[in-house]
Design a binder for these strands. Structure first.
Lengths: 333, 333
DNA sequence: CGAATGTGTGCATAGCTATTCACTCGCCAT
DNA sequence: ATGGCGAGTGAATAGCTATGCACACATTCG
């Protein structure tokens, strides 16, 4: 109604209850020294006025906002949604708020850092597949802690949580060999993703250990279309692989659909397949995909711990093991 | 390093540059009266100190934080991820920040409203399937505008954006009839979702208009498992439907997989199917599901408009038409 | 009964920025 | 020459809360 309305302040409540502003503050501060009768009167007045304590002055003094910024690159992959959900739960449980920041590629530099600093966010979690070292350096200079997921940034205020991508790659090679694979293929993710690089390196290492020829290679993205393209590339040539490790589940689904539709190769069946992320869909009937479960709970728990490390001198890195969940995609028909 | 470090303030910069605090403020305020030479000297000093203007004092005075809270119930449905992504883009483009709040059921009351009010969020967007009227009333009393998506809350500061769920239900009935359906079934979402209720009502209305018998009914959730259960229920009895309208795509996928696996009913084929949301997956080979596209861009654009309506006296509601995307699930084999 | 302890309350202040007001110059026009 | 004007700058202030300090009063103990 009125043009310049202003939410009630503690002073307004104090006036209404006939006490001082400090009394109001104490009424809302657990453990503060205040008579129960006074407290009741104040709460009543506050309720009537619709008063809620303004958090900003406290933040202004302490420079601790209780806000954690989570930076993501997009949501096309359900894995991000799962991570976001887990983070949201954990932050809420810790009494903190999540500020969600979405960036296209590395345009993060243009003002986003300024914004985050301006709001005095307590820390930044980067769930970006690719993260800009420049942005990280800026945040470091501002002494804002950063926790990266599956990334390989380094710096004073940077901590990281990763899957043991390399070990999983090795395990994938062993499993596929054990199940009877002889001609191996790797469906790659984007080249600038450290997770992709480590998974591929691990797979190559595992194959070498087993004395197998190195894998054929296709793909180059974490999305469905990229997997579909990779499958066409791999199976259009003369020498077809019979065992595939895919950089993630989403790409694996693209592979499976193309194999079935375009090449009549029913999976499970003629081609062995392993993915990564263990999405809900991996258990669905058309896929039944063997996959590495990233144990998001553990990732998030580790990240939450690292958030509050104030020292920040040494670069802390945590590695969370992935758990292999085997389904029919690694069974011969 | 030092225990109580404090980020540089405008006063620190002023001291370093040999000017007053107000000059520093003006150097960072576009269009402020300041000599170019002075400005340059200040920016240099600010850069050296790593100064970023603190946004909190301004918020403290204006009570406008630039933060919009987005409330969601979970991310299990990729549709939420798509909505979130679109909102994030729109808010960033408008120079605002997103605070993401996740609530289990209606525990939103327990402190979340207090938090949001405390941070002085400019508005709340509720993407919750089910939303608590009590929470909405609290926010209204605080004069915080709310925009709900596909909900039916009402109140002074509440605006809503919805799909034309009823019309889509009618359209689904007509399409299924046109394609040859004779025995209809409805796979329901959760009973407390207004969207579910409207879709079902529209479907029933459409069938009645066509002079068909009312639909068999099963399900009761928006998730995959609920759809799977519904399919078993519907096809275990004697009279099997041959045309299904599913409350959303996720449930439809569950239906399709069960029909194929448990009953050998290939879809597309013997059973006609229509879903809702037009997820990416609806286009994938195992599904090729006819679905209603909610036009998220339009939803978000409408919501962004409604956010800044300051008047708030009348309850504004926008309806966004859904677009039918037909695929093979509505073709007879 | 005096001192000491404890309880409850008010006063004053820090924290940082944008903005208004006032002031000083230099310059132009009358 | 002098009033007026515009540009550039500094001082002061509002905005709200938590908290340290001081004070008043009640209670208990020696």
């Amino acid at each position: 109604m009125s043009g310049n309305w202003r939410p009630p302040s503690s002073t307004d409540v104090a006036r209404a209850a006939g006490v001082s502003q400090s009394a109001v503050s104490r009424a809302f501060t657990p453990g503060a020294r205040i008579a129960e009768a006074t407290r009741a009167r104040i709460l009543e007045a506050a309720e009537a006025l619709g008063y809620r304590p303004n958090l900003l002055p406290k933040i202004l003094q302490t420079n601790r906002s209780g806000i954690v910024a989570v930076v993501v690159g997009g949501f096309y992959n359900p894995y991000f949604a799962m991570t976001l959900e887990a983070f949201s739960k954990a932050l809420t449980a810790a009494g903190r708020q999540m500020m969600l920041v979405r960036v296209d590629s590395d345009r993060i530099l243009d003002g986003v850092v300024d914004q985050l600093a301006g709001y005095r966010v307590d820390a930044v979690v980067s769930a970006l597949a690719l993260t800009s070292q420049a942005a990280a350096d800026q945040l470091s200079k501002l002494r804002i802690p950063i926790v990266t997921l599956n990334s390989d940034l380094a710096g004073d205020w940077i901590r990281s949580v990763s899957s043991d991508n390399f070990a999983a790659g090795v395990a994938a090679a062993r499993l596929l060999r054990e199940r009877g694979g002889t001609r191996f293929g790797f469906v790659a993710g984007p080249a600038d993703s450290p997770a992709q690089v480590a998974r591929e390196a691990g797979f190559a290492h595992g194959l070498a250990e087993l004395g197998m020829a190195s894998a054929m290679r296709a793909g180059g993205g974490y999305d469905y279309a990229s997997g579909a393209r990779a499958a066409r590339d791999l199976f259009s040539g003369g020498e077809r692989p019979d065992a595939l490790f895919c950089a993630n589940d989403l790409a694996a689904f693209g592979v499976i659909d193309v194999l079935r539709e375009d090449f009549g190769l029913g999976a499970p069946g003629e081609v062995l397949l392993v993915g990564y992320d263990n999405l809900d869909m991996a258990a669905w009937a058309p896929y039944r995909l063997t996959s590495f479960d990233q144990d998001i709970q553990a990732h998030v728990a580790a990240a939450m711990e690292l958030l509050d490390l104030e020292a920040g001198a040494t670069c802390v890195a945590r590695v969370v093991p992935s758990r292999l969940v085997e389904r029919e995609s690694t069974l011969r028909s």
